[in-house]
Design a protein around this nucleic acid. Structure first.
Length: 425
RNA sequence: GUGGGCGUAGCGUAGCGGUUAACGCGCCAGGUUGUGGCCCUGGAGAUCGUGGGUUCAAAUCCCAUCGCUCACCCCA
């Protein structure tokens, strides 16, 4: 027997209902802020990620699904969304539209990682980007989308961690200060940090090794080294967040794993710490466009891990939708009755109802069991008598009430008892 | 990539060297002639993750491998 590839999952109907719900909430939140949907390819030229995400990051050094197609192109399954969206922005001339261009997507991503709870090799994200705008209002806006999305799903105890890591003007000075702070203490830090000191000093700050904690705590803080522009940007961002009473925690040691981030970085974490906790994160990436060969273009966005969000929704007992059930189930005796049921079910479906005809050759008792298992509120019984009278026995599964309904009245009878829906025009 | 735990029918579990691998849920069918959800009875369904080894004998012990899981790492 074949097994699904490691780190992948099958989303079965009852789970798919939950996924659809969460994705709809995401799309709805994006809509409220004026963000349009974008769908980019599942695979891209591998160089886009090498340049965009940055070699030196685990994502491209160790985790990328890379392959060559028959034409010899070097391609990669997308490990993240932002580089693709920026590529589309540059390639499709979105820079000539009113700025910022506000985009969201619901996509699957691929990372060759070691799977565990909340971490898969194929996983899904709600991704939001505002490109072409430096205004800190765009930073505030994407954070607000993420927050309202999670809030309305019913998640509790969440925290927004916020920091600014400066830009090309002030970051070099900060890095220098950081390195100067760590150099004399090189013997006190872990092996990973000694490596980071040479390759990616910023990451010294988020080391989780216990022995490095006191040293990292005492390290220079990015927010103390911001240039005037970055400091002003950060202050204004905080002002907008306060205006909508969006709670956040300034976290001086928060940095991010991808190279393209500048200024604002943020992360949303659930109350329980440990493991794969981060459910969403993002920030500003004013240097990305240039990095992948485009004109300098500011941008800000986030990615939210839908697998982790659903995991948290279940843990917290948040309201989730049940599987879809049909409106009516046809329980027929004999092939003539089944033939008739096919036609009657067709009528119901043309009116927008979900109608299921019981299959196989079974006793009426077995039919009722099928009907109950289907969850349909109405069971429509068809046998010799009903065919002769051209009227079905229609039973309400909840009350047990049963009525004789002539075939022409069937649609009305079933519709009338359904929850009324808003009329569509 | 590193280390720990686990892998028995669709699901949840028992069995932990010895003849037909057990139980609950679920599934299918019966319990008089066309009415389900409770109850009763019966049935189908497992090469005990896979491959190799030890042994007279292995689901039970050993090794490998695949998968799940936890921590590290990384990140969403």
């Amino acid at each position: 027997m074949y097994q699904s590839p490691r780190g992948t999952q099958d989303i079965l109907p009852e789970d798919a209902a939950v996924w659809r719900y969460v994705e709809q909430r995401a799309a709805e939140q994006a809509r409220r802020f004026g963000y349009g949907e974008i769908r980019t390819p599942t695979f891209e030229d591998v160089g886009l990620f090498l340049r965009g995400v940055g070699s030196g990051t685990d994502i491209v050094d160790k985790e990328i699904y890379r392959f060559q197609d028959k034409g010899g192109s070097e391609l990669a399954l997308r490990p993240e969304a932002t580089a693709s969206v920026m590529r589309a922005y540059l390639e499709r001339g979105l820079a000539s539209r009113p700025q910022p261009v506000k985009l969201y997507s619901l996509i699957n991503l691929f990372r060759y990682d070691r799977p565990q709870a909340g971490r898969y090799r194929e996983f899904r994200q709600f991704n939001v980007e505002a490109i072409g705008e430096e205004d800190p209002l765009s930073d505030a806006e994407v954070i607000a989308i993420l927050w309202r999305f999670l809030e309305e799903l019913g998640l509790r105890g969440l925290d927004v961690l916020l920091n600014s890591i400066g830009d090309k003007v002030c970051r070099p000075g900060f890095i220098q200060a950081l390195v100067e702070y760590y150099r004399p203490r090189v013997d006190e830090i872990c092996a990973d940090c000694r490596r980071r000191l040479e390759t990616n000093p910023l990451r010294l700050l988020d080391c989780k090794n216990a022995r490095c904690q006191p040293i990292a705590d005492g390290a220079p803080k990015t927010i103390d080294h911001l240039c005037a522009d970055c400091a002003a940007h950060f202050d204004r961002l905080r002002g907008y967040l306060q205006a909508i009473k969006l709670p956040y925690t300034i976290t001086p040691r928060l940095v991010r794993g991808l190279d393209y981030y500048t200024r604002t970085v943020f992360e949303v974490v659930p109350p329980i710490v440990g493991g794969q906790s981060t459910i969403g994160g993002g920030g500003r990436y004013d240097g990305l466009a240039e990095e992948i060969g485009g004109k300098p273009t500011p941008g800000v966005g986030f990615a939210a891990g839908l697998d982790r969000i659903i995991m948290n929704l279940r843990e917290q007992g948040c309201p989730l939708p049940a599987s879809e059930v049909p409106d009516a189930f046809f329980a027929c005796l004999g092939d003539d009755a089944k033939h008739c049921a096919v036609m009657l079910a067709d009528r119901l479906r043309r009116e927008g109802m979900a109608a299921v005809v019981g299959m196989g050759d079974r006793s009426l008792k077995a039919r009722f069991r099928q009907a109950e298992a289907s969850g349909a509120p109405w069971t429509i019984i068809l046998g010799e008598n009903e065919l002769r009278e051209q009227a079905a026995q229609v039973k309400n599964g909840l009350t047990g009430e049963q009525a004789r309904v002539p075939f022409p009245d069937l649609v009305l009878h079933v519709t009338g008892a359904l929850p009324s829906e808003a009329p569509t025009t």
